Simulated scan of single mutants.
Amino acid sequence: MTAEHPESEHPESEHPESEHPGLDLAVLGDWLPEHVDGAGSDLTATLIAGGKSNLTYRISDGSSSWILRRPPVGHLLATAHDMGREYRMMSALEQTAVPVPTMYAMCDDADVLGAPFYVMSEIDGVPYRAKSELAALGPQRTRAISERLVDTLVDLHRVDPADVGLADAGRPEGFLGRQVQRWRKQFDAAHTREIPAMEKLYTMLADRVPADTAPGIVHGDYRLDNVLVTPHDEMGAVVDWELSTIGDSLTDLALMLIYGRLAEITPGAVTDATAAPGYLSEREIVERYAAGSDRDLDDLGFYIALGCFKLAGIVEGIHYRYVNGQTVGDGFSQLGDGVFGLLDAGIAALKEN
């Protein structure tokens, strides 16, 4: 299955064509055969449910199938939902040790489906999200999956952006300082309420930005349910590259650690897969990453705090779309409450480090 969440918890939803948000199958049927070899024009689509960001569809012509990704319908925050960035990053990584889907076609013409989109291969894999799903595999398989998740991140951060044509895919100089400012601006762009803790964490981060490090590829949202795990427990493909760039790669490690804490910070709104028996502890994740990487982890607390600030900004953006009636699917009404726990966790990380 290719999805943002596993089929056992979030089954795919079949909809009539008129109910496919942001997808006109008649128009796509004209476009696809001209850009994907062998594709037919009589198409069906399945919306892969559960995602709270970009829309992901399985497209089929009856004999072959592909995955189509496009931005959500409605208001888009600046620099978010960049289809071109996703497509370029995965295309560049196809010849590296980092597993990614095959990229087939990119459409920059918003007149086709109302927004840019791309088409990629379908991967036989599951993006594990729930503790119960990993628990069913047993602790030995769960441990192996979590080890491979860390090893894949190390492989990604070993890639020299210049070697794969990505040297100009970001601005690594002053990256961390710009990240602090960027996510502050995202809060402003998604403003629906006053959040004093956001102001406090922003000030603390701005006051202790570390010096630049060697530039690397940053996935921007690295976690287990953004990796498709094959039936043999291998990493089949890293997906969801909408926030990727070139910058300080330690931001990926920190964000992955934060996702491991989210079940306690924001109960009911996030994955709890890291609580499954056998899954690497936070200390084991850091040690395994450090063993394969030459990056300095001494100021990891800053990166964790920045990750909390970033994730809170993303959640606040989703909350903004919910408040304005621009979300698709269920599960949004309480999501905005998680912003406060994330901000508090960021403040605590800076005080502890």
Rank of each mutant, 00 (worst) to 15 (best):
A3N: 04
E4W: 14
P6L: 13
P6H: 11
S8T: 15
E9N: 08
E12P: 07
S13C: 12
S18D: 10
E19H: 12
D24G: 02
V27S: 00
D30A: 14
V36N: 03
V36Q: 05
G38D: 04
G40V: 10
D42Q: 14
D42H: 03
T46L: 06
K52N: 13
T56F: 00
T56H: 02
R58P: 03
S65H: 14
L68A: 07
L68W: 04
P71Q: 13
P71T: 08
A78K: 14
H81R: 10
M83G: 05
R85D: 01
R85E: 02
S91W: 01
L93P: 04
P99L: 03
T102D: 13
A105G: 08
D111G: 07
L113Q: 15
I123S: 01
P127Y: 02
K131D: 00
K131A: 04
L134I: 05
A135R: 13
R141Y: 00
V154E: 07
A162I: 03
A162L: 11
D163C: 01
A169G: 04
R178A: 12
A189V: 00
T192D: 09
I195Q: 14
R208W: 01
A214V: 14
G216D: 01
P231T: 06
E234L: 06
V238R: 08
W241D: 08
S244L: 06
G247N: 02
D248K: 12
S249G: 15
I258L: 15
A263R: 06
P267Y: 05
A269D: 13
S281P: 04
E284F: 04
V286Y: 03
D298E: 15
I304Y: 07
F309W: 07
Y320R: 05
V323I: 15
V328T: 15
G329W: 06
A345M: 12
K351V: 09
N353Y: 13
